[in-house]
Each structure stands twice: as C-alpha cells, then as structure tokens.
C-alpha cells in the first residue's frame, strides 16, 4: 500500500499540494530551549531549536521517543511554556502569555488532533465538534449549525447523535479533525494522529488532513511513522532535542 502510494506520488498522479504555500511565516521558532526538572536533575528536552514553517505548509516532525517532539508540539500549541528563545505564531509573539490570553490564542489560531482523539466521552459527535465554539461564545443554535457542516465535511453527518464510544477509531479521529477545524484555525497540530489507527484508516485520515491543508490551513503532524511523514511537504527530524541539520530533504520535490 505504502509503496503503491509512493509510486503514484512520484509519477505525479496525485495532485501537487504546494499550491497554497506562501512565503508568509506561520510558525517561527528561534533558539527555543526547554528543560524539565526531575528531582534534582534538569532534563534538557529542547536545545536551541530553530523552526520555520510557512503559511499553508504541511510538515511532519519526526523523532524517536524522548527526542522532544511532543514537547515541541506542546510549545507550538501554547499548551506548554518554553524557557528561552522566541516563538512567533502568525507574526504574533507567543511569550509569557496569561492563561486567559493563551486560551484565546489556542481557540483562534490552533486546532488540535490527538493520538487518543480526546473527545469528551459524555458528549455526542456534534456536541464534541461544537466545544471550541462554546468557548468562543457562539450561540447554541449557530454552534450546532456550524458543527453540523464540519461533521458533514469529514463525512460523518449521519453520526451526529452518536457518542464516541459508539464509533470506530477512524470515525473518532474524523470527529476530532472536525472539532479542530470548527473554530477556523490557522494551524492544525496533529500529535500522532494515526498512532491508534490501522494503516488503511491512517491513510483516510491523512487524506482528510491533506484536504485541510489544501484549503489553506497550515498542518503540522508529529509522527514516528515514515509513510505518514512522507506524505507531508517536509520532514523535520528531532534528535536529542535538536533539529537535525543538513537533512531536511523535501519529500515531494
């Protein structure tokens, strides 16, 4: 399957995806450092990370476990603080934000897709998709209308009333993607989005993420699966908290 896909891609049978990439910077990290204190020791997770992702790009971050890729994603997602360096998201400095402001930026800029879906188990698909809109103060009726259209976009309009427990992993991840998109974010951050899925479902999910990217949204995927990473424009490899230099071979050129 993987090989077939690569072959098709090399032959140019699949549409090129760089059409929406501009030269406007969406994510810009300079010399980001992050360490955790564990007992008396400091664990230096990210060391002088420089990263530049342009608006409309679709990139993947790869690295073995412990390479700091999850930490990097959390910093990108304003879920975690960094110790030193600079982070600009859509030309907005992300530095020492109040919880309130961080919440606002998360809501406006970023859509999250997680490995374990992280849907609220007691809410049905439609309600789950509508959660970010709730925190934007959108009225219930309008919320449901928008959420329905996004569920429709991921092909789950008929599943609106179902609870996550009644859905397959792929369906849950599609609900999660709809939820990530509903607030019209500039960036989708996907943390091992296919980690809990079989390969066929994984490709479906990647297909959706590619479509999302084609609509102009920057997509960052953290993964350890090569075939997944290879479907993005660019792979950023992390090793021991450093971005590996000299390597970033553009995959799709």
């Amino acid at each position: 399957m993987n090989a077939l896909y690569s072959m098709l891609m090399e032959q140019g049978a699949l549409p090129p995806c760089r059409c929406t990439v501009s030269f406007v910077s969406m994510i810009r990290l300079t010399k980001i450092n992050k360490s955790y204190r564990i007992g008396q020791h400091a664990l230096h997770v990210l060391r002088d990370v420089d990263l530049h992702i342009k608006a409309g790009e679709m990139v993947s971050i790869m690295g073995s476990s412990g390479s700091g890729k999850s930490t990097l994603l959390n910093i990108l997602g304003i879920l975690d603080q960094y110790d030193s360096g600079d982070y600009y998201l859509d030309e907005t400095p992300i530095r020492a934000l109040s919880e309130r402001k961080a919440a606002m930026y998360r809501n406006r800029f970023i859509g999250f897709v997680f490995q374990s879906f992280n849907l609220l188990p007691f809410k049905n698909a439609l309600e789950n998709v509508a959660v970010p809109l709730y925190y934007q103060g959108v009225s219930r009726r309008k919320r449901n209308r928008i959420a329905t259209s996004y569920l429709d976009r991921v092909g789950l309009a008929d599943w609106a009333e179902h609870l996550p427990s009644e859905m397959s992993g792929g369906q849950k991840q599609r609900v999660a993607i709809a939820r990530a998109l509903v607030a019209r974010p500039r960036v989708i951050l996907a943390d091992e989005p296919t980690g809990a899925l079989d390969s066929e479902t994984s490709y479906q999910i990647m297909q959706i993420l590619e479509e999302v990217n084609q609509s102009g949204i920057t997509v960052v995927v953290v993964t350890h699966e090569h075939d997944i990473a290879e479907r993005t424009h660019r792979i950023i490899r992390l090793h021991d908290g450093r971005v590996q230099t000299g390597d970033p071979v553009p995959v799709r050129q």
Binding site: G77, R100, A103, R106, N118, L120, V131, Y135, R179
Partner: peptide, 13 residues
C-alpha cells in the same frame, strides 16, 4: 479539563 483547555477554555471558565 485538559481537552476543554486545549479547545480554548480559560481557567476561569
């Protein structure tokens, strides 16, 4: 709570 925060809920909310 973590999910709600990631979705943009403030601690106050």
């Amino acid at each position: 709570i973590g999910i709600r925060k990631a979705m943009g809920a403030t601690p106050g909310e």
